[in-house]
């Protein structure tokens, strides 16, 4: 790897206001390629809002979010910014300005997939169908935008077989292959969480955004999740952005942790560094400001 520390996603001066409420206040951070980057913080810190901005579900009030799958070059970013367009095609070196793209374009072109805090599957469709819907854009091209597919063109049938194979691979990975023909709404909670990750992975993302994937899981399921996320990171060209409250998951698997509180970044670094950051401790345990200053002063001394 030429540049192990190359950032895949750079968020700069991101601000999101809802009327008078400032949900995110001038936030900057980056997620490196091949890393698991965790975004943590107390309830209401603005973590999910960051996700919604990155995945295009919210239009940020201001700020810039750059996704650079290839080598990151500042002149190229400046050129794209000046051009007024949202993305640059593959032959010129892919580059995406996420704040200018719509949600489905971010998923389709920039290859950013996400899961939701409150699971959003297609409950009335089977597990397999959920994974086939995730491969919509590839299949749509193969079906000649429906026209060829309507008459059963061999190209489409082949593409569908490939899609089913990919779905089977991911069903195997999340141990749901035996339930492929069951409706997704019938699965137990933990399995629904796994299916949502499998569905996101079927879009072959570069960046996978997971919003509290361990919420509601028992310790065993949590351990399986950790193994799954680590293997996604090592075996696939997918970097992970993770919101999580379960500190055992965060501290064990993430390479880099960003801590938010009241929409601002209060800490940023390796899990160990963050764990020992007095500001983080204060944010989580609710220590008064004077005490924080006191602790900081002591550390400085």
């Amino acid at each position: 790897m030429a540049a192990p520390a190359a950032p895949l996603l750079t968020v700069e001066h991101l601000t999101m206001r809802f009327g008078g409420l400032v949900a995110i206040d001038d936030l900057s951070f980056s997620a490196r390629r091949g890393d698991i980057t965790a975004v943590i913080g107390p309830n209401g810190a603005g973590k999910t809002t960051v996700f919604n901005c990155v995945t295009g579900f919210y239009k940020p009030t201001s700020g810039c979010m750059v996704l650079s799958p290839g080598e990151r070059s500042d002149p190229a970013i400046a050129q794209l910014t000046a051009s007024g367009r949202g993305w640059r095609a593959a032959r010129a070196g892919e580059l995406f300005l996420l704040e200018r793209m719509r949600d489905f374009q971010i998923a389709r072109r920039a290859k950013v997939a996400r899961t939701f805090q409150n699971i959003r599957l297609f409950p009335g469709m089977t597990v397999l169908e959920n994974l086939i819907v995730a491969q919509h854009n590839a299949l749509m091209r193969a079906s000649g935008w429906t026209i060829l597919g309507l008459f059963g063109a061999p190209g489409y049938r082949k593409a569908e077989r490939v899609a089913v194979e990919r779905a089977k691979y991911w069903l195997d990975r999340v141990a749901l292959i035996d339930r492929a023909d069951d409706p997704a709404g019938d699965l137990p909670y933990g399995a629904q969480r796994r299916l949502e990750i499998a569905r996101a992975m079927c879009t072959e993302p570069q960046l996978l955004c997971l919003d509290e994937p361990a919420a509601g899981l028992n310790p065993r399921e949590s351990a399986d999740l950790k193994a799954l996320l680590t293997s996604i990171k090592t075996e696939h060209a997918t970097s992970i952005l993770l919101i999580e409250h379960d500190m055992s998951v965060v501290m064990e698997i993430s390479d880099h942790v960003v801590v938010l509180d009241y929409g601002q970044k209060i800490s940023d670094g390796t899990p160990d560094a963050v764990r020992n950051d007095p500001k983080v401790v204060a944010a989580y345990l609710g220590v008064e400001d004077e005490e924080v200053e006191q602790v900081e002063a002591e550390i400085a001394r």
Binding site: T55, F57, D103, F104, Q105, A107, R108, R109, A113, R114, F116, R120, L121, F122, P123, G124, M125, E129, I132, V133, A134, H136, N137, R199, A200, T203
Partner: peptide, 17 residues
């Protein structure tokens, strides 16, 4: 399938491109 997915959950559809 996209129609049916749309009926099930529009937000999830958009997250899948």
């Amino acid at each position: 399938r996209a129609w049916e997915a749309l009926r099930e959950d529009e937000t999830a559809c958009r997250s899948l491109g």
